[in-house]
Simulated scan of single mutants.
Amino acid sequence: MKRLLLTLALACTALLPAQADQALATAKSCMACHTIDSKRVGPAFKEVANKYRGDKGAVDRLALKIRQGGVGAWGPVAMPANAQVNEADAKKLAAWVLSLK
């Protein structure tokens, strides 16, 4: 019984970072242009994760793009710079996006 409770507790805590990072994405206005599963203005976060899967430098590059913006990686629509996101939050957001499957 203790083992089952421990397993359940660990499973629940594994879900918390994903929820917290989606909350961060919402708070930082990322969800205005992106969704997790489908294209909105920008690509779906899962599509971004698939494109960069296995790329060891992706977290840093995506964090920079979150903060500075960019154009061309997903077509002609520019991603505006997001000045309200600090470097630590940008890396947290990038890691969360890349963790999606």
Results as ranks from 00 to 15, higher is better:
residue 25 A to M: 10
residue 23 A to R: 07
residue 23 A to F: 15
residue 34 H to V: 01
residue 2 K to Q: 13
residue 95 A to L: 12
residue 95 A to S: 15
residue 69 G to H: 12
residue 82 N to L: 06
residue 74 W to C: 00
residue 56 K to N: 06
residue 84 Q to M: 10
residue 93 L to Q: 02
residue 69 G to M: 12
residue 18 A to F: 08
residue 14 A to P: 05
residue 9 A to L: 14
residue 83 A to W: 09
residue 34 H to F: 00
residue 99 S to L: 03
residue 11 A to K: 02
residue 75 G to N: 04
residue 7 T to A: 15
residue 77 V to Q: 04
residue 72 G to T: 07
residue 42 G to M: 05
residue 33 C to L: 05
residue 44 A to H: 00
residue 69 G to C: 10
residue 7 T to H: 02
residue 18 A to Q: 13
residue 80 P to G: 02
residue 49 A to T: 05
residue 56 K to M: 01
residue 13 T to V: 14
residue 76 P to D: 09
residue 36 I to V: 15
residue 75 G to S: 07
residue 85 V to R: 13
residue 11 A to R: 05
residue 95 A to K: 14
residue 3 R to T: 14
residue 76 P to I: 12
residue 60 D to R: 09
residue 37 D to M: 08
residue 69 G to Q: 11
residue 18 A to P: 07
residue 65 K to M: 06
residue 56 K to A: 03
residue 1 M to G: 15
residue 66 I to E: 07
residue 4 L to T: 11
residue 80 P to F: 04
residue 35 T to C: 04
residue 22 Q to F: 11
residue 81 A to V: 00
residue 43 P to F: 11
residue 25 A to T: 01
residue 69 G to V: 12
residue 60 D to T: 04
residue 70 G to L: 06
residue 95 A to V: 02
residue 33 C to Y: 04
residue 71 V to R: 14
residue 36 I to R: 08
